[in-house]
Nucleic acid binder design. Structure first.
Lengths: 193, 193
DNA sequence: GTCCAATTGTGACCTGGATCATAAATTGAC
DNA sequence: GTCAATTTATGATCCAGGTCACAATTGGAC
C-alpha cells in the first residue's frame, strides 16, 4: 500500500490547508492517512499550551495507524505544516490489505520499529541529558541524510518543541555549537559541516 | 509464536541470574527473546551512569525485535530484574515465522503500537510536565490493571528511572500525592485507592 | 523600494528539582 | 532473635534552563 497504489486504485484525495487540524487528541480513529504531498506534524499540547512534536511526516509517509490498530483515542493533534494532499484509508480497507499483503505488513513492522527507535532515543535524552547534549543528538539525527553545506530547514522553535526546551535555550545552544564548529550558521540558517 | 508454542517445539531455555545482562547497547541483534519466567528491564544509561527505564518485560512478553528487524545495534541494556528463564528465537526462525503467520504478525503490530503509545505518553510528560504531573501520569498507568487496595510493587528508584527524576523528588512527590488521597501509603508501600 | 510578520538574538532574574549529606525504617538472610 | 543491605525519608544548598522583556534580522507580499 503506497500513495501511488492508492491513486491508481481511485482512492479519494483530501486537501488540507496549512495549519488545518487533520485530527485532534481524544478523537476516535477511523483511518490511516497517506500523504500525497505536503508535511504534517504530530504534536501533543499540555494544559499551558506548550507543544511537543512527537513526529513529522512527509510525502509518501503515513500516520495514525497505532491508534487505529489499538482502537484507542488519539493522543496528539496532527496538523498540516503546509498545504497538503492526504489520502485517508478507512479501517476495514486498511485491515483487509494488511492481512492479505505480507510485504506491506512487514514494511509496517519496520516502520513502527523505526519510530520506536526515535522515541527511545529522545526519551533517553529528555530523561537524562542536558540541553546541549539533547540538541546535539537531535541535530545529528536531522542532519543524518543531508549533504555537507546543505541547509537544515527547521526553525529554532521546532527544535525546541522536539527537544522539550524553550526557543531561547535552543538559540543560545546553537550559537555555542556553531562556535565549536559542530555546524555553520549563515544568516541564521543551520548548515551542515 | 508464544512461550508455550516454543516449549512444545523444543526451543532451548536459557537461565539468567538476577542482575545479569542479556544484551548491552551497541551489540548486534541476533534474536528475539521470549520470557518464560522472571522479569527484565530495558535501560539506557548516560555517561554519568544515570539510568532510564525504557520498558519492563515480564513472563510471556518478548523483547528485542525492533533492533533485529531494523538490523541496528541495540540502544539499551536488557537486564534480568530477578532470576529469569528466557527463550531466544534466532533471526531466520523469527522472520520465517513472521512471514508465514498472519496472526502473529498482526499481534506484533499491536504490540509495537502499544509500546509507541507508552513512549509517546512519556515523551509528552518528560518534555512538558513537572514532577508531580509526571508521577501522577505514571502511577495512573501502572495502577491501571490493579484492584483497589492492591500494592504496586515498584520502588521509588524505579519510578524515578521511568520518569526522568531523582529518587528524592519521587519520595517527596508521592508523600504529597498521598496527602491529597491520590494513593495510600502503608509502611512505605504504594496502595491503590 | 516599503511594510509586516516571523524568526533570531540578548540580557536579567527566578525557580523546580538536582545534589549532597545524613538518618530512619524495612526486608531478607542467618 | 541479630545484622547488613536496601529502601524510604528529610533538610539545606545550588544551578540549568525557564521566564520575561525587548531588540535586531530576515523574508515575503505588494
Amino acid at each position: 500500500m503506497t500513495v501511488n497504489y492508492l491513486l491508481a486504485n481511485g482512492f479519494k484525495v483530501h486537501d488540507y490547508a496549512k495549519g488545518e487540524v487533520i485530527y485532534p487528541p481524544d478523537a476516535a480513529p477511523r483511518a490511516v492517512y497517506f500523504i500525497k504531498s505536503g508535511k504534517v506534524k504530530m504534536v501533543t499540547v499540555n494544559a499551558e499550551g506548550q507543544e511537543f512534536i512527537q513526529g513529522i511526516f512527509k510525502a509518501n509517509d503515513y500516520f495514525g495507524e497505532p491508534a487505529l490498530i489499538l482502537n484507542k483515542p488519539y493522543l496528539a493533534y496532527t496538523i498540516a505544516m503546509q498545504d497538503c494532499e492526504i489520502i485517508p484509508v478507512y479501517r476495514d480497507t486498511f485491515f483487509k490489505f494488511l492481512d492479505e499483503n505480507t510485504v506491506f505488513s512487514r514494511k509496517l513492522i519496520q516502520n513502527l520499529s523505526e519510530r520506536l527507535f526515535y522515541k527511545s532515543m529522545m526519551l533517553e535524552e529528555l530523561a537524562n541529558e542536558q540541553a546541549e547534549h539533547r540538541i546535539r543528538t537531535l541535530l545529528n539525527y536531522l542532519f543524518k541524510d543531508l549533504d555537507k553545506d546543505a541547509e537544515l530547514k527547521v526553525t529554532r522553535q521546532q527544535l525546541a518543541d522536539m527537544a522539550g526546551l524553550r526557543v531561547e535555550t535552543v538559540i543560545r545552544t546553537i550559537k555555542k555549537l556553531a562556535a565549536q564548529a559542530e555546524l555553520k550558521l549563515v544568516r541564521g540558517k543551520l548548515i551542515k559541516v
